[in-house]
């Protein structure tokens, strides 16, 4: 086996046989932000055969504090993250085939990419996309690894279709008004800690050491010195619509998708959640105020402004993103606030 991977093949659960498997596998990584860039670097160094990176965003100054690989030059060039990642990865390990796809992932365009994929790594920043991954994972029988972080907190879970509970078993509905990195901030070790777990789980799956896959949800808080694993022995639901006996893959249907539309003749995009929400505007105002937004609200709507961009959010979750006609950007801005 190659000198490059000698310390990895020395690790007995990988070995030469495991390394050969890793080098034949195809991983799809959804997101090239904090979790994504670090996961991409780890898998490329480990020598995965093919890595497909999907991301809709470009590199900005405020990313540099926690997003691996990216440089000030990437910011100056306003490179899309998937492309910037690909360029760095090529310099790290030219043997890995890296496929950079700049797009806003939907159930439809994602499914087309999953043909020969062995593992989906979650590096997204919202539950809507995770539920799409979760349904596709069940439908196409591809394992996926949930990972998320905010502040000093993180969470991760490995989902093996047909074996473990799925994310939909654990979350009856998509949680709304959780903290996001744009409202609660984030420190890099929270990212790194999630990535450590995701990479370890990914390697187990790639070398097909199924017995070692962690049968529990991991939750931690590095600032408050907390670490908890939650076993999922009884969590699988027979009537789960994503993985149960009467499954319908609800998140693959158009109804369950956030809608965006450019408002006619205005520099504004309207964003509408799949189902009407019942937002607590006062709490949201408090969170946003603490995050440097200029906030005004009344019982019906909230208006917030930062860096020249103004967003108006109605109590039912509908929002107007002012100052843009870019629907992808508007959806991202919306999800950066509401998660």
């Amino acid at each position: 086996m190659k000198e490059r991977y000698s310390r990895q093949t020395l690790f007995a659960p990988v070995g030469d046989g495991g390394q050969l498997k890793i080098m034949k596998k195809h991983v799809l990584l959804l997101g090239a932000g904090a979790l994504g860039s670090a996961n991409a670097e780890a898998l490329t160094r480990a020598g995965v055969g093919k890595l497909t990176i999907v991301d809709r965003d470009y590199v900005e100054t405020s990313n540099l504090q926690r997003q691996q690989m990216y440089t000030e030059r990437d910011v100056a060039e306003k490179l899309p993250k998937a492309e910037a990642a690909k360029r760095h990865l090529l310099g790290i390990n030219h043997e890995v085939e890296v496929n950079a796809i700049i797009m806003d992932a939907t159930a439809q365009n994602l499914e087309q990419l999953l043909g020969d994929v062995d593992l989906i790594l979650d590096a997204t920043d919202n539950f809507e996309t995770r539920m799409i991954i979760n349904d596709l994972s069940q439908k196409l029988h591809i394992p996926w690894i949930y990972g998320a972080c905010v502040g000093s907190v993180g969470m991760t879970l490995t989902i093996l279709p047909g074996q473990t509970p799925c994310l939909h078993c654990l979350l009856k509905a998509i949680p709304i008004q959780g903290m996001t990195c744009d409202t609660g901030g984030i420190i890099s070790p929270a990212v790194t800690m999630v990535v450590a777990h995701q990479t370890a789980e990914a390697l187990k799956i790639l070398v097909e050491d199924w017995e070692s896959v962690r049968p529990a949800l991991v939750s931690f808080d590095l600032w408050r010195n907390q670490y908890q694993t939650v076993k999922l022995t009884k969590a699988k639901k027979k009537d789960c619509l994503s993985c149960g006996e009467q499954r319908t893959y609800p998140f693959l249907t158009v109804e369950n998708v956030t809608k965006t539309a450019v408002l006619c003749g205005r520099d504004t995009v309207q964003v509408r959640p799949p189902k009407p929400l019942e937002l607590q505007l006062e709490k949201l105002a408090k969170d946003l105020d603490g995050s440097g937004y200029l906030v005004k609200f009344n019982p019906f709507l909230l208006s917030c402004e930062k860096a020249g961009e103004r967003i108006v959010i109605f109590k039912d979750g509908r929002a107007l993103i002012h100052g843009t006609k870019d629907m992808v950007h508007a959806k991202a801005a919306y999800q950066s606030i509401l998660g």
């Binding site: 990195c181 908890q228 939650v230 076993k231 022995t233």
Partner: peptide
């Protein structure tokens, strides 16, 4: 992992963990 309708007994330890989306 437990549901809302899980019944608790004396001595149980219950952890509440907010889901993370970032």
């Amino acid at each position: 992992f437990a549901d809302d309708d899980t019944i608790l007994s004396d001595g149980d330890t219950v952890a509440f963990i907010p889901p993370v989306s970032g």
